[in-house]
Amino acid sequence: MSAPAATLSVRIGEVERTLPTIRTGNLGRVPLVEFIGDPEFTNAAAQAMLALIPEGTEILLTVVTNALPLTHELSDRSGLPYVCARKKRRTYMRGPMIQDVPSLSLGVAETLWLDGPHAARLAGKRVAIVQDVIVSGGTAQALAKFVVQAGGTVSGYLAAFSRGESAVRVSALHALPVSV
């Protein structure tokens, strides 16, 4: 079977983008969402995601890298602060928390690091997990473990896009197909 041009168009507010697709081992072609380098798309998504923030949320938690400008805009527009987990240990971290993510899409386990002083900002707070795209929910679950470990509670999971069946209940602007 010959495949047609493998792209996918999405629209958020007034902004439309054609998503490129990349070939992965076991899924065929999957759509690639890029907020980095695209302030217009980032801002449109952040504006639309304001409505997805669960009531009572006091702080946002995200992870580097693709969701970072998105979470910054969401934070600035909502007035809610945010905390960001890293994928590498940094020498300046003080008492970091560590969580492993069993990644299905890449077939490689990832480790997330949350610097101690940043984790302390989640204590006693209702925390919304923010990602650009939630697929299996493995990363979202690892972030949720940080929240619990830090003494906070998870108010919900939000993402610009979901793709496939996630292990967590996600509020997303759009559901992307598992493969194109």
Partner: peptide
Amino acid sequence: EVKALSLAHV
């Protein structure tokens, strides 16, 4: 990346 990313966005 990473720490200056949101700065560049703004």
